[in-house]
Simulated scan of single mutants.
Amino acid sequence: MIASLVKPLFVDRYVLYSNIGIALLLGACMDYLHRLWQPSRNAWIAAVAVLAALVPTSLSLRTPQSRTDDVTAIGAAVREEGRPGDGLLHLPGQHRIWTAANPEDTRLLTDLALAQDPVSSNTLAGVGFPA
């Protein structure tokens, strides 16, 4: 994770859960130091150091700028270029969710690969035709 601050090696939000492990490890270290030193100025310095290590990373991962794949851009492009009755083909079918952020973007278009809509199929994304 430290090397990824210089050169990203993964998409941050997929390993966000690992920050919990770091927080637990730092908490265990804090507890150890607290027991070792008793409540003192050093314990407060350690607490500030822990917060300084965790908070900036956590906050930066929650900004729109941390997202490199803007799925709302797909819906915006379809909204601008599509006309009522135009066909829309999602390949592969599981990427249909990318246009689900704002259903108004594709409401007037015909989904060519959708066999059953979400309501009639009782699913979140509907059922697509087989390849």
Rank of each mutant, 00 (worst) to 15 (best):
E80P: 04
A131Y: 03
D105E: 02
H95Q: 14
L112M: 13
Y32Q: 03
P103C: 10
L112S: 08
R107A: 11
V6T: 12
W37M: 14
P39D: 10
L89R: 04
A113I: 12
D12A: 15
A52N: 08
A113P: 06
A76T: 06
L9V: 14
D86G: 00
D69L: 06
H95Y: 14
S121I: 09
A46R: 00
L51M: 03
V15C: 07
G126H: 00
A115H: 13
P39V: 10
L59V: 13
P92I: 01
I2D: 11
A52H: 05
P84V: 00
L36Y: 14
L24D: 09
P130S: 11
A53G: 02
H90M: 15
N19H: 08
S121H: 03
N42A: 13
Q38Y: 07
K7R: 12
A77G: 02
Y14Q: 14
E81M: 09
D70M: 01
A100V: 14
T68K: 11
P39W: 10
T99D: 04
W44Y: 10
M1C: 12
P56G: 00
P84L: 00
S18A: 15
L59T: 10
L16H: 03
A52Q: 05
D111W: 04
E104W: 02
D70F: 05
M30Q: 08
V48N: 11
N42Q: 12
L124F: 04
P103M: 10
V6M: 09
Q116H: 11
N122E: 13
L109N: 07
V71D: 10
L36K: 12
P39G: 08
A115K: 06
P84E: 01
S66F: 09
A28D: 11
S40Q: 01
P130T: 10
C29R: 00
F10A: 12
P103V: 14
R35S: 06
V6S: 04
T63K: 11
S66D: 11
S18P: 09
V78P: 00
V127C: 02
W98V: 09
D86I: 02
P39K: 08
I45S: 09
I74F: 06
G128D: 12
S4P: 12
A113V: 14
V127N: 01
L16M: 04
D86N: 01
V55M: 03
T63N: 13
L89P: 00
R107N: 03
A3R: 07
R83L: 06
T63A: 12
H95F: 13
M30N: 04
A23G: 03
Y32E: 07
S40P: 01
Y17H: 15
L114E: 15
